[in-house]
Design a protein around this nucleic acid. Structure first.
Lengths: 300, 300
DNA sequence: AAGACGCCGTATCGTATGTTACGGATTTTA
DNA sequence: TAAAATCCGTAACATACGATACGGCGTCTT
């Protein structure tokens, strides 16, 4: 017996018009619907969308106040967000999420969840979790989002600043090592906090600040992001699925999966994303970067 | 790999008194708790319990009115039911259900199952190649090899030095950031080549030098490895599948796959291997590292 | 550089939801 | 069989939740 396929309030069953994409094509799940429209949303609602896909779908089952607080926006923004998705009110949105969950939990596949793993070979669970994390991370990054970020980074007039937290700064450095080769004006913010802040004076509206930040989120990075944001710098944030508070100031937010059965969180997904960004940017800058690389060779 | 062992579920995790059975033994899930007490319940509440386990757990996330109507009982009966389970009010009961769901949805196992179509069609070839590289890299690492390396790194009397090449040094730094937490005497060789060589004087027979080196292999690293080897230092080399010349001096060689359809080589496999090493070592040093971490917390 | 548009947050309102008191019905016990 | 205890539902209540109007602010346009 299907759990409430129309029993609670007679009308809602199948004719939900909200899940139908404007283009005419159906989005099979709300998550897809969101990622389709994420790019066309205003900043606040986009933050709501990002926190929803990052904590899908449970955040959407909580109250509007909880949702809004977790996303760092106000309640009306949440309601405008669900309205933009096509729902007439918040309960209808929640009902759709629950129906989706019900379908998943009822599927015969889910019954095997509690059974031991399919155990493909002798690979460790940590490794499998890491691979899944990477795959999941990329599932939630739309091509358009990727393209826009690359476009920002490809602008030769923009300066690019990179920085990371205690454990993620190596990822920032890894990315810096590559970016400095394919384009000029790439700077890694190193050393002490006071040193970064002095670099703020070099940052302007056209520039980009790329921040890697997973929990525990460092206050120093938040302060830097806030000040940079105040100067109009475009912030690209690569964080974990719980979203660093810097998301508040970020133009683009990438929510990577970091949870693994270990004492540590895994930054592998962030690392692979950084590599993907490097690759895309290199292709976008192909002409210029090739010439640049040739010049560097000669300088040896 | 960010710090902090069990902070995935905020703080609310264990202190929920409701899930603790009166007898003193813990019920691991609410479903178990229900089936334990089902027999001692009055008729109406038992119907509530049965409908809940039958449509677990989504019916419990709906309103009391929905729940009661679906179970064929009145609203107060539902509330008495959740009160009997030990919850102080209905929202608290719902929060517990959501936490349980969150745990299930977060486990990578269930996620792979719940996502019906792993559609590898949309994922980029670079990403697929990266994932395959990681898997293949680990296929060629024997458990014994891993265990011996961990054993070397776990020796508290040994000093550990880490270094990497132009693109891989961030991986070495990433690993250093973690190792310095779980054990003492961990040093990252930074700065100029002349600086490293001065550190050679600190290296002895019991010490370990962990080198990351992929092509193009840097002469400076080779020279360092040679001199360290001459002093009897045990070298662990993490390189690409074409093997850095340092392999000549290394006690252990990990050959990672780095080839991807891109202009760059991918260091993702090396990164994930580093994470695996960190995880294994942390477990091996569990007792000492836990004490060490506790001390560090107090020093803040 | 000035205006207009769109976005977002504060404050308020109406209502649905969870909660509780109370009386009747049913089962249990003497 | 009668009395008592327990259980359950009806109905009224209060909270808090979702919804909305409004004003300030930033951003883009001409």
């Amino acid at each position: 017996m299907g759990l409430c396929s129309g029993c609670t309030n007679g009308a809602r069953a199948g004719e939900n018009p909200s899940i139908r994409a404007e283009g005419g094509e159906m989005a099979s799940s709300i998550a897809e619907l969101i990622s389709e429209r994420m790019d066309t949303m205003p900043a606040g609602e986009r933050r709501a969308a990002q926190t929803l896909v990052a904590n899908y779908p449970l955040i959407g089952l909580k109250t509007v106040a909880d949702f809004s607080q977790h996303a760092g926006v106000s309640s009306p923004t949440i309601l405008r967000f669900v309205a933009r998705l096509g729902f007439h009110n918040y309960p209808e949105f929640q009902a759709a999420l629950q129906d989706e969950l019900a379908a998943q939990l009822q599927s015969p596949l889910s019954r095997t969840v509690l059974e031991p793993a399919p155990d493909r070979g002798k690979t460790s669970p940590v490794l499998e979790a890491t691979l899944t994390n990477i795959r999941e991370t990329f599932r939630h990054v739309s091509e358009r989002q990727m393209g826009e970020i690359v476009a920002r980074l490809a602008n030769p007039r923009a300066k690019i600043f990179l920085i990371g937290g205690r454990f993620t700064d190596p990822v920032a450095q890894y990315m810096t090592a590559h970016l400095t080769i394919v384009r000029p004006n790439v700077f890694h913010l190193t050393g002490q906090e006071s040193t970064w802040r002095d670099r703020l004076i070099d940052m302007g509206k056209r520039d980009v600040l790329l921040i890697f930040d997973i929990r525990r989120y460092q206050d120093s990075l938040i302060r830097l992001a806030e000040k940079a944001h105040a100067r109009g710098v475009e912030i690209v944030l690569v964080t974990d699925q719980w979203l660093s508070p810097i998301a508040r100031f970020a133009r683009y937010v990438i929510a990577g999966r970091t949870a693994v059965p270990s004492s540590w969180d895994s930054s592998a997904a962030l690392f692979v994303f950084a590599e993907a960004l490097i690759g895309e940017l290199t292709r976008a800058l192909e002409a210029e970067s090739a010439r640049r690389i040739r010049e560097m060779e000669e300088l040896r």
